[in-house]
Amino acid sequence: MRGEYKVPGGKLVAAEVEVDDGILSTVRISGDFFAEPDDALENIDRALTGMPEDASVQQMSAVVTAAIGPQAHLIGFDADAVAIAVRRAVGRATSWSDHTFQIIHGAAETPQLQMALDQALTESVADGTRPPTLRIWEWERNAVVIGSFQSYRNEIDHAAAEQFDVTVVRRISGGGAMFIEPGNTITYSLYVPGSLVEGLSFERSYAFLDDWVLGALSELGIAARYVPLNDITSPVGKIGGAAQKRLASRDAEARNKLGGAVLHHVTMAYDIDAGKMTQVLRIGREKLSDKGTASANKRVDPLRSQTGMPRADVIDAFKDHFRGRYRTADGVITESERRRAEQLVTEKFGTGAWLHRVP
């Protein structure tokens, strides 16, 4: 059995594994990485041989770290990457190539329904009723999306929000507030089974799930990079921010097979009115500076200015890059998913109790 793991920004690690009676009887690690001293790779293979087939990433990583010792240097990969490759080889984790991803790019939706659709589609993936999916959002109105744990009154100037007709909603993931103007932002969500990020910490999974869009931006001539924990940036400033939420399946069989599901969503600035943003959001000049502008009178426009392309063409380039990289099929939101989302709007995302859960 063979498994591979490409370290975001690093090298490819491959694991060839044989299993006898639940034990790793043969393990051979290879890849285009660098390792010193020369016998480090043999020590890794030897250390993993004899481990239980169902050993966790943490257990295997600890064994690898102990086997190579503190003087060894792993360049372009690490012990976790080795463990993830082994887990994929024995079918305990999946890779991008194991899935066919649906791509959904539908009509504009209200902010409340967008929040609800994120939860509904993540639930569907967790339950095994939907394949992994990339969804491109369209916004029906101006909005601010605050993180699950942010204080409404600390983040939002309520009078300014009303003045500029901005609807404030709260999402299920953590992180900071996002200022939205229809036509001036690009928002997408990835809904993937937990098996795709199995063994990855939250921090590693951000880089892993953002890797494809960095490739898409590179093709557009933007030297974008991932900045921990959740930012995508370029030499002229921040482009966008990501957030994640992991949900368990409501079905025990699917939960054991898929490991639940991960919601990974990103909002990027195409051409935002920074003056309006700083009136609605209670953010200081220092925070604004990492969004590519030193003055509230300027616009935050990294995607427009760096590509010179209309927003629709940038989105099409993103989708084309994703299609060229993975197996895909066009998809739609199902009737049952929309009913579930509408229920969530009524019971959760459209309520004052949810919006002001942190006053």
Results as ranks from 00 to 15, higher is better:
residue 276 K to W: 04
residue 211 D to T: 10
residue 266 V to P: 00
residue 225 R to L: 11
residue 253 E to V: 14
residue 215 G to I: 04
residue 227 V to G: 08
residue 276 K to N: 01
residue 208 F to N: 08
residue 247 L to M: 13
residue 277 M to N: 01
residue 260 G to Y: 05
residue 225 R to Q: 06
residue 229 L to E: 06
residue 239 I to M: 10
residue 224 A to Q: 00
residue 210 D to M: 14
residue 242 A to W: 02
residue 242 A to V: 06
residue 213 V to L: 05
residue 238 K to S: 06
residue 210 D to S: 12
residue 241 G to F: 03
residue 208 F to G: 09
residue 265 H to I: 14
residue 227 V to C: 03
residue 233 T to P: 01
residue 257 K to G: 15
residue 270 Y to L: 12
residue 204 R to C: 14
residue 269 A to I: 11
residue 227 V to I: 13
residue 208 F to I: 14
residue 234 S to W: 03
residue 258 L to A: 13
residue 253 E to H: 08
residue 247 L to R: 05
residue 211 D to I: 12
residue 259 G to P: 11
residue 246 R to M: 09
residue 235 P to T: 05
residue 278 T to E: 01
residue 261 A to R: 12
residue 277 M to L: 11
residue 252 A to L: 15
residue 273 D to L: 01
residue 203 E to R: 15
residue 258 L to R: 10
residue 248 A to R: 15
residue 250 R to K: 14
residue 235 P to D: 03
residue 216 A to M: 05
residue 219 E to R: 06
residue 267 T to C: 07
residue 216 A to Y: 00
residue 216 A to S: 03
residue 252 A to N: 15
residue 211 D to S: 08
residue 261 A to I: 10
residue 264 H to D: 07
residue 224 A to P: 00
residue 233 T to S: 04
residue 224 A to R: 00
residue 255 R to T: 10
residue 277 M to P: 00
residue 230 N to P: 07
residue 210 D to G: 10
residue 222 I to G: 04
residue 231 D to W: 04
residue 252 A to D: 14
residue 259 G to D: 07
residue 222 I to F: 01
residue 243 A to H: 03
residue 247 L to H: 07
residue 277 M to Q: 02
residue 254 A to Y: 12
